[in-house]
Deep mutational scan, measured.
Amino acid sequence: LNLKQAKEEAIKELVDAGIAEKYIKLIANAKTVEGVWTLKDEILTFTV
């Protein structure tokens, strides 16, 4: 999975969960695949 694909998957998951745009922007700015997954997990843990 490359960075672009990771971001697309994570953003789709966050949108489906009804997460606010400000958190989705954090994913869009992530620099690594690991960073994308870590941010996604943290956002889902603390906002859902």
Results as ranks from 00 to 15, higher is better:
32 T>V: 02
34 E>M: 07
13 E>C: 13
24 I>M: 06
23 Y>E: 02
40 K>D: 01
10 A>N: 01
17 A>Y: 09
46 F>C: 13
35 G>D: 15
48 V>K: 12
22 K>W: 11
6 A>F: 04
12 K>P: 00
40 K>V: 15
43 I>S: 01
43 I>Q: 00
14 L>Y: 01
18 G>P: 00
45 T>Y: 12
28 A>V: 10
23 Y>F: 12
20 A>V: 06
23 Y>R: 02
11 I>F: 04
45 T>E: 09
9 E>M: 15
35 G>V: 10
11 I>G: 02
37 W>C: 06
15 V>D: 04
34 E>F: 07
28 A>M: 15
17 A>V: 05
18 G>H: 05
5 Q>L: 11
11 I>A: 05
46 F>A: 09
9 E>S: 11
9 E>Y: 14
43 I>D: 00
38 T>N: 12
30 A>E: 06
23 Y>T: 02
3 L>G: 00
19 I>V: 15
7 K>Q: 09
8 E>K: 10
31 K>N: 09
16 D>C: 11
8 E>W: 10
7 K>L: 06
29 N>C: 13
14 L>S: 00
24 I>S: 03
36 V>N: 01
19 I>L: 07
17 A>W: 09
3 L>S: 01
11 I>Y: 05
12 K>A: 08
31 K>R: 09
19 I>D: 01
9 E>H: 12
32 T>R: 02
31 K>G: 07
27 I>K: 00
2 N>M: 14
1 L>F: 12
34 E>W: 08
3 L>W: 02
34 E>P: 05
22 K>S: 08
36 V>Y: 01
23 Y>G: 01
6 A>M: 04
27 I>W: 01
40 K>C: 07
42 E>R: 15
1 L>M: 13
20 A>S: 11
25 K>M: 13
13 E>W: 10
29 N>I: 08
21 E>A: 11
7 K>T: 03
47 T>S: 13
39 L>Q: 04
25 K>F: 09
14 L>N: 00
5 Q>T: 08
5 Q>H: 09
33 V>P: 05
40 K>I: 09
7 K>Y: 04
46 F>K: 11
14 L>I: 03
39 L>K: 04
4 K>C: 08
32 T>N: 05
45 T>H: 14
1 L>R: 10
2 N>S: 14
29 N>P: 02
31 K>A: 11
4 K>Y: 08
46 F>D: 06
5 Q>C: 07
9 E>G: 06
37 W>L: 11
22 K>A: 09
15 V>C: 11
22 K>H: 13
40 K>H: 08
48 V>T: 13
13 E>F: 10
37 W>N: 09
5 Q>W: 09
15 V>T: 13
33 V>D: 01
19 I>C: 09
4 K>P: 05
48 V>E: 09
33 V>T: 05
2 N>D: 12
27 I>P: 00
17 A>T: 04
17 A>N: 07
23 Y>Q: 03
22 K>P: 07
28 A>S: 10
11 I>L: 05
13 E>D: 07
5 Q>G: 05
32 T>Q: 02
39 L>P: 00
42 E>G: 05
43 I>A: 06
3 L>E: 00
46 F>E: 06
15 V>K: 13
39 L>V: 06
5 Q>K: 13
24 I>P: 00
16 D>H: 12
23 Y>C: 08
46 F>Q: 09
30 A>M: 09
25 K>S: 10
35 G>P: 00
42 E>L: 15
8 E>C: 11
38 T>A: 15
31 K>S: 13
17 A>E: 04
31 K>M: 12
11 I>T: 06
33 V>I: 11
19 I>W: 04
34 E>I: 09
14 L>Q: 00
35 G>K: 11
14 L>M: 05
36 V>K: 00
39 L>A: 04
35 G>R: 14
30 A>S: 05
11 I>C: 06
26 L>G: 03
7 K>S: 02
26 L>I: 07
26 L>F: 06
39 L>I: 10
30 A>W: 02
23 Y>N: 02
27 I>S: 00
20 A>Y: 05
6 A>P: 01
11 I>S: 04
41 D>N: 15
24 I>W: 15
8 E>I: 11
5 Q>V: 08
40 K>M: 13
30 A>T: 04
22 K>Q: 09
37 W>H: 08
27 I>Y: 00
28 A>K: 11
3 L>Y: 02
25 K>G: 06
21 E>Y: 12
3 L>F: 03
25 K>C: 10
14 L>F: 04
44 L>Y: 06
19 I>T: 05
40 K>Y: 13
47 T>H: 15
4 K>I: 10
18 G>D: 04
26 L>H: 04
16 D>R: 14
31 K>H: 08
4 K>L: 11
38 T>E: 10
20 A>D: 13
43 I>M: 05
25 K>H: 09
6 A>D: 01
27 I>T: 00
2 N>A: 15
45 T>R: 15
8 E>R: 11
3 L>P: 01
44 L>S: 03
1 L>T: 10
27 I>A: 01
7 K>P: 00
41 D>G: 07
39 L>T: 05
29 N>M: 13
26 L>N: 03
9 E>K: 14
1 L>E: 09
35 G>Q: 15
11 I>P: 00
37 W>P: 00
20 A>G: 10
13 E>K: 06
39 L>C: 06
9 E>L: 14
8 E>F: 08
44 L>K: 05
46 F>H: 13
44 L>W: 05
21 E>C: 11
1 L>N: 10
6 A>S: 05
28 A>Q: 14
43 I>G: 02
46 F>S: 09
37 W>D: 05
15 V>N: 08
13 E>M: 14
45 T>P: 04
10 A>R: 01
47 T>N: 12
10 A>Y: 01
10 A>P: 00
19 I>H: 03
20 A>W: 05
42 E>S: 10
37 W>V: 07
12 K>E: 03
30 A>R: 03
34 E>H: 07
15 V>M: 14
16 D>K: 15
2 N>G: 10
6 A>T: 05
24 I>G: 03
21 E>V: 09
18 G>F: 04
36 V>R: 00
16 D>V: 10
43 I>H: 01
42 E>N: 07
48 V>M: 14
30 A>C: 15
1 L>S: 10
1 L>Y: 12
27 I>L: 07
10 A>D: 00
20 A>N: 09
48 V>R: 12
46 F>N: 12
38 T>V: 12
34 E>C: 09
31 K>E: 11
2 N>E: 14
36 V>W: 01
29 N>K: 11
46 F>V: 07
47 T>A: 15
34 E>G: 06
28 A>H: 15
6 A>H: 04
35 G>I: 12
42 E>V: 11
18 G>N: 06
12 K>F: 04
4 K>M: 10
12 K>W: 05
11 I>N: 02
47 T>V: 15
13 E>Y: 09
17 A>G: 04
7 K>A: 04
38 T>R: 15
19 I>A: 11
41 D>S: 10
38 T>S: 12
24 I>T: 06
